[in-house]
Design a protein around this nucleic acid. Structure first.
Lengths: 207, 207, 207, 207
DNA sequence: ACCTAAGCGAGACGGTACGTCAGGTCTTTCG
DNA sequence: CGAAAGACCTGACGTACCGTCTCGCTTAGGT
């Protein structure tokens, strides 16, 4: 578990004078926040509740995070692990297929709900969206773009595709179902999607 | 503008005795709610704020809508017009392309932000999501599925596709960019998506 | 126990619509406040504490009293009874002597401490002083001035005295000892004071 | 301006090892405290405010004064000058009259307000009252009692009076008006008081 | 000339209470 | 007799200070 200090935390202290901030309190707050996030969700989570569970005063939280959104974002990121790496099977289609299956599994856990509430909360707090995008989404999109570029080099994929659009086409339906809940987010759905999208990327294009 | 009595409103009144409900108050509430929705989004919208702007008491709102979610959905739907119909050009690809362009235009207006905050707020309020899905999303997905079915009958599209998955593949990237804001939601993006997804649906499939 | 609506309460409501303010809550708050005033004094008394003891929400208190000072003032005045009336013995000296004895007895009870903390708190809140002066002090000073005037008419007292100054000369030492605590506030002290001050008021003045 | 080490300061340091306490900080704190005392009064004065104005850390204050009361008393006393001495005109009445005029002048300055808030704050902080009484009131009462004793020896005053009661009778009205503000504290009022009280003390008493 | 104890300003700590806002309910009066 | 208005209680908000506790740094005696 890696401490992530992204856009959401206030500036790291320039080794100024005064008592340094307690790392113990910091961790305790993030941990309490993440627990509550999974137990009651974003909306029901209160700063007072976090303070009480972390055995910390409210001002100690407000001193570090200026809003619930930012605290929750950091708590989420601090609990991130690298479970979403891409395999290297030699086939772009297979690499992406396997990683999307992993992603679907995660989105179907409570962690998936946390992601959903974060994106939801982000609709009224731009900072949370940009932090989520920068610290969670971007790294995974970057990995995916590397896989796609490798596929282009190999001639497995067309060279004139817009990589960002491809990634959107592949992954957005997963988030769409996560958020809209109009249909279940199954692994079969992933297979369907791959079958729909990959042909349009073929190195030997449309007849 | 038509009063929508869908899943979200409480039962219509049985013309009982006593003072009738003021239609003026009703419209005034919906109007105030929609305005606030555009100004501050779903989460920041408060029943008190709506009551104040509509010059109405809180119970007058609660008497008609049992929750913020239902009020907001009605306000949103009351402002709906049917600008998202599909053309009939004879080509599935063209029909969908044109309708998606219309959708993108709308998503880039304040109304797009309202949709975003509704989906966002829905992450912690299941009722919002299901009402949005039932009253706004479903009709458009139905229209789209009719277009697709017509394409299958014509032989323009493969007959073994999962129509729900196809609709997701086509439309979810638009909502994805609406919500995540990692890239602009342009009309060129629509063209790219169509180029990526449609080949996988061809009546005369992959080589 | 008489409900006093003095300078300290906000205007009485013009019998408008809506739920009327609960008199039960009102009395309960005043009672709790007075109890706490006697138990812990003005400074240690908190609005939260009053709310908790009165089984009432904080906003219910703030809706009626804009500050701790005004609440406390009203609580004090609501607990006022008319125990400080002047007798009519036919002798000014005797009338005042007896009433001052009564006052000393009261000032030596917890109620005396409440008065002390009110005057104390009033040093940083002008409103509390003026409310105390208007609702508690003034009536008693008026009674006393009537007694003095009667004495002047009778020829028992000089006619050229400044009545306000006389009242100050008589009563201020009691408050002085109440507040400064440099010496006990005994009934003998009252007798001493009368012996010192009354000769200066004699109808047949200084030789 | 003399550093006062009365009941209020903690023990003087035994000149141990280590860095000696900064006298500059000491003076700066007292000065800041007195300024704030005049600006906002005892109750509104905060240790944080003093520390900020004195450009000093909070612990530097707490190391020297264990409570707000003690700090404030020292700040008040450090700003004392001996402007309230008694003249020696040969007449008790004149001596006291002149000194009371001086006192009234002072009580009508901001310093008078400081005294008022000190007495006020003392109603919920016994330490303030006893320190004020010991370090400010007592010396002046002692001086006054000397004047009175001299008057008794001279035969100008009765020998059977209670000196403490006399001092109270003379001075308490001034503090009474300072604190209750029901009437202005003028020099004419002093003259009135003298006329009322002095006859009761005459060496050749009531007719 | 070093050591070391105690001071320094700064500022974070766990707390308590503040005064406010909005939630959803209840109780009046008015139409 | 039900709609409208507004007070009700509740709970959380974000802030201000409390008095204490580190920090990294002087500052001077003591060895």
């Amino acid at each position: 578990m890696q401490k992530v200090v992204g856009k959401t935390t206030t500036k790291v202290h320039s080794r100024g004078r005064g008592r340094p901030r307690s790392d113990e309190a910091h961790q305790s707050i993030l941990h309490a926040a993440y627990e509550l996030l999974m137990e009651v969700g974003y909306t029901q989570l209160t700063i007072e509740g976090v303070a009480a569970r972390a055995l910390v005063g409210k001002p100690t939280i407000y001193r570090r995070w200026s809003s619930k959104a930012r605290l929750v974002m950091d708590a989420f990121l601090a609990a991130t692990n690298s479970e979403l790496s891409f395999p290297d099977t030699g086939s772009v289609k297979e690499d992406i297929l396997q990683q999307m299956h992993k992603l679907v599994k995660i989105l179907n856990t409570p962690r998936g709900q946390v992601i959903a509430t974060l994106i939801g909360g982000g609709q009224t707090d731009p900072e949370i969206i940009s932090a989520f995008q920068a610290n969670w989404l971007s790294p995974r999109r970057f990995d995916c773009s590397q896989v796609i570029k490798k596929g282009i080099e190999r001639g497995e994929l067309r060279s004139d595709i817009d990589i960002e659009a491809v990634i959107d086409a592949l992954y957005s339906p997963l988030f769409y179902r996560l958020l809209l809940k109009h249909a279940p987010l199954t692994e079969d759905f992933v297979d369907e999607l791959i079958d729909i999208v990959m042909p349009g990327l073929n190195g030997y294009p449309k007849v």
